[in-house]
Design a protein around this nucleic acid. Structure first.
Lengths: 206, 206
DNA sequence: TCCTAAACCAAATTCAGATCAGGAGATTAG
DNA sequence: CTAATCTCCTGATCTGAATTTGGTTTAGGA
């Protein structure tokens, strides 16, 4: 049973290295296909050492998901603060969503591929806590978008429609990209960002 | 090692029962969480009997995915044949996508949750064959939508834009629903169908 | 009746994830 | 400075679910 280690990152901690290695493996090869032991190999530690930092393979996955959700949420807030009108804010939010590093692309892919993990409770206490945390963040992100949509409808910038459905659809538009996008692929992130940005405005328009 | 049994469904074959049980379990509890043995229990056979029909748990999953893709593709063709203008056809396609039984909802959920499985090759020959089959069907569905979009742009009914991006976004709109929709939930399928239908037209409009 | 193929199963095996029982080196309290 | 206590780590071992082995049973045709 692993002890703690979350908040207090010791100086010789390999937690960050493990997370990076896991993100690469989970993102490139998929969570199920990557052997937990191979992550240890990549970092250069024994398999058992992983359990010093994470309670389980799934706990590591949930941590990656939470981290990414936290980042997305922050970026959204920053972006929205920049815009004046709801339309500006929507554009900024989409722009922010696609302003990501290659590692963050992997994290988004991992997040989207395992969203369903957040639906069912976990046996272990720490995993369940991490799951709840991630769920709360998902709700927060959804609320972010819903609030933006509602502001837009209230001000008359967006056409009045079911705000929840609208925000769900907007969010789906953005995150669906990570299912097929590959860094170095034929379509550039800028291209995608512009297309999705336009599409978003069409969705809230007449 | 399982022998054959695909094409020739014997009279006492339990293949269909196994598939139904698996769809229920995989859909409700998730693929990873459902124990392969529990599917056998549900059908009322021993665990090993499953291997008479499927090479592995994953092979069963891939079969479910292929089946659903085949059905979706057929329904799309039917729906499009009904409409006259591209706009009619788009509406009909969306309508058809949401005209599903509760079991088909589960199948769509399973399909969407494990799309990433199609990305990486399988070791076993039969699994790999089923994967290739599913991949081909995915491409076919994507082509269906892209063709529809291109027809609409050519005729001037839809605004001229990148057809691939547009069809991807339309498809994402439709399938994203299965991530959160639950039968008996607060939102009805008719409601969703109408909202997504409208949203689709907005996406191809000015 | 005898034979074959489909359908089935109990027991053994495998393998990846997880646990156990420590131990060495840094850090801190006394 | 020295004992207690962390942090980080390892080798041996365990566990449980998927799969394999090596068959037996059942139904239907010749």
């Amino acid at each position: 049973m692993a002890r703690q280690s979350q908040a207090t990152e010791g100086p010789r901690s390999k937690r960050g290295l493990i997370l990076s290695a896991a993100i690469e493996s989970f993102g490139d090869d998929g969570f199920e296909l990557t052997k937990w032991a191979s992550v240890a190999d990549k970092v250069g530690i024994g398999q058992t050492a992983l359990y010093h930092y994470f309670e389980s393979k799934v706990h590591c996955l949930l941590t990656i998901m939470s981290t990414e959700l936290e980042r997305s949420s922050e970026r959204f807030d920053q972006a929205v603060a920049e815009g004046d009108t709801p339309a500006d804010q929507l554009r900024a939010a989409v722009r922010a969503a696609f302003d990501v590093t290659p590692q963050e692309v992997l994290q988004m892919r991992i997040l989207q591929s395992h969203m369903d993990l957040l639906a069912t409770p976990r046996q272990s206490e720490r995993e369940e806590a991490e799951r709840q945390h991630a769920r709360a963040l998902v709700r927060k992100v959804e609320k972010n978008w819903t609030d933006l949509v509602e502001r837009g409808m209230a001000s008359g910038d967006f056409v009045e429609r079911d705000a929840q459905q609208t925000s769900r659809v907007l969010l789906a538009l953005v995150v669906s990209v990570w299912r097929w996008y590959r860094t170095g692929g034929p379509t550039s992130l800028e291209e995608i960002r512009d297309y999705i940005g336009d599409a978003s405005l069409r969705l809230v328009g007449p």
